[in-house]
Amino acid sequence: MQHAVRLDNVDISFGATGKSVFRAVAGANLSVAKGEFVAIVGPTGSGKSTLLNAAAGLLKPSAGTVEIQGQPLDGLNGRAGYLFQADALMPWKTSRDNVAIALEISGTPRREALERAENWLEKVGLKGFGHRYPHMLSGGQRKRVAMAQVLIRDPEILLMDEPFGPLDAQTRLIMGDLLLDLWQQDRKAVMFVTHDLEEAIALADRVVIMSTGPDAKLIGDFTIPLARPRDVSEIKLSPEFQELHRDIWHLLKEQVLKAYGNQNREERA
């Protein structure tokens, strides 16, 4: 089986060599198959986003290899689309221009790009919002535009860094459903970082757990056999879901408590 993303024994450190080096991630191994939806869950500060940034090519691992579809990653990962946690739209462009620019960059003529941007805005439920600037949209609507912006390029891999983190609980459910709906159509490989275990189980084929940092590594790997298509809000009520949640939470809880302890110690220091 060919892997879309393969992280092999990856270490990621911050700080100049020689000075005090903070090793966020140590010896992480993770592979994501083509068409597989993998969620990475861990306590705050566990290096989940760091790992994702390594797969994106935004960070260079200090040791180990990152392979994208069998080839070692050099520079930015051009096959991946990245959905950020914070607002990443260009505030000086309308939502339609924000989506269209993703195509124009690679040479699509402006008229065609705008037309396809309109289509994508419709797909994410924002028909008629094309002329609005990001500040005129709600947080959830901005996320939809960001999704359209990433997906219009048709990337082979989707990297998502707590994309729904800043949204309220109801909007998160709706966005989860929208994401699954779009994903179902062409099943890209997905790396989805979250600290919300329920969200992870509801969305993913596989949930991996990261230990608390520094020297974070992957300590658990759970297959989620729940049937698709799924309804994100309904699925949480099923007994299978709750059993999975119980099993995984048992492992995660330990890490969360450990992270919490670390934090307290830092505060006292």
Binding site: N77, Y82, F84, D87, L89, P91, A102, Q149, V150, R153
Partner: peptide
Amino acid sequence: TVLQNARMLGMSERQLLRHVYLPS
């Protein structure tokens, strides 16, 4: 974040200048 996003969308240095640095 806007800058990293533009990079991930595949903007070249020149495109970054025109679409990100200049408007900012």
